[in-house]
Design a protein around this nucleic acid. Structure first.
Lengths: 223, 223
DNA sequence: CTCAAAATAGGAGATATCTCATATTATTTC
DNA sequence: GAAATAATATGAGATATCTCCTATTTTGAG
């Protein structure tokens, strides 16, 4: 992890419209942190000292259960907050947050800014929107996981993450994200290949029948 | 559904500390709605005209999937909001909300109060806390449903909802809530009876081995 | 370059959960 | 209070998903 200082900080900050996020000046005690791929931004179970706002990059939220299973709860993208749960609640089980690409964040020390943040309308309004979207998204994932087998959820995931007709996610990550065993994921991917929805190309999968996948994915949406 | 008027409204309002919720006066255009058990407070797919705040009672959030499966996403209790998603987002798939007991709500017409609500620090701070708790709760339910079989989740549910050692929830509701089939719920309840964790008493179940259930429930918590 | 670790791959058998069908018993409604 | 509706109950067979095992290939660290 690197903290931007002096000139580097100043240069970077010039690109950011802080006034869109906060209605009070934050420059002074605010830091800019850069995390490398696979760095832990927050460790599971350890309260963070900062409220983060992701400027660039992508991260993953993980939780470890007592039976050893690990679930990738969700991805975090730019323009999202990290540590907001701890800002709002004194008691909270902190999830682990890991950078999945190079990730650059604003980092506001909580001890210093907490009070002012909780009185800042602009910040609170943005946070509310973010949190409501997060709650909605989790509710959707929850009900979908109960109502549909992997076949449908995987089809949707493939369409969402494929790039120019090629699906190339790591199986291990996908298992954690969709909450199924590695073995089962392979079964269903093989089914897709047998039905010629996909075709294996080395480690990757080429989408052959977009519409078949789309049909499977479509039934899980609520619109 | 009944709307409290005049004297009834005034009398009821006397008990409420509106200043804890909003920092601007809301009495004027605010209504008080009373819903009977099983009334729909919001119909699935139809945008509500009000932001509600539950004063008394309990309600259920439902979603219907395209394959016909219905999930009871969550319960709503007093001091919680209804319709806040629609307040914050112009595009949102509205879930159905049904009163499960007599439920009394503050009802603020959105068209009238929206703007002021979104500028009210006190309201936004409360809403943020509510939403963050909601997001956390949904995330927990999601990961638990992926990581543990019904046995564990049901044990927790029984302990949470039983009253003086007696479990008496409707099977149908529990199926929707825990996202399993009726048939499977009965299987697992029967297992609990065979292992003598529970004993059937008419329609209800008497808890016989609190500690066995507790052991099953405990492993799903993250603390 | 080499070795360890991570990722991919698939077999075999178990089990968690589902669907469908059918009865019986409460509860509600007119 | 009879008929319709909702809730409870259980069997039988299917399937979605898991665990455990083993082997090969790729990647990363030194």
């Amino acid at each position: 992890m690197e903290i931007y200082r002096d000139e580097k900080k100043r240069l970077y900050l010039e690109q950011i419209l802080l006034t869109e996020l906060f209605s009070f000046p934050v420059e002074e005690n605010m830091e800019i942190h850069e995390y490398k791929r696979d760095d832990w931004i927050i460790q599971e179970g350890k309260r963070p000292d900062y409220l983060f706002y992701v400027l660039e990059g992508k991260a993953k939220i993980y939780i470890t259960h007592q039976n050893g299973k690990v679930t990738l709860i969700n991805f975090i993208n730019d323009q999202e907050y990290i540590g907001e749960m701890e800002l709002l609640h004194d008691v909270y089980y902190t999830k682990g947050i890991q950078a999945s690409t190079k990730t650059i964040c604003l980092a506001l020390p909580m001890y210093y800014y907490r009070k002012r943040l909780l009185e800042d309308t602009k910040f609170l309004r943005e946070l509310s929107k973010f949190l409501s979207a997060k709650a909605t998204h989790m509710a959707a994932k929850y009900t979908q996981s109960l109502a549909f087998p992997l076949e449908n959820r995987l089809a949707e995931f493939i369409l969402q993450t494929s790039d120019e007709g090629v699906y190339k996610e790591k199986h291990v990550t996908v298992c954690d994200y969709l909450g199924v065993s590695y073995r089962h994921l392979l079964y269903v991917l093989n089914q897709f290949c047998e039905k010629e929805y996909l075709q294996k190309a080395g480690r990757n999968y080429q989408i052959k029948q977009f519409d078949s996948l789309y049909r499977l994915a479509k039934v899980i949406e609520n619109k």
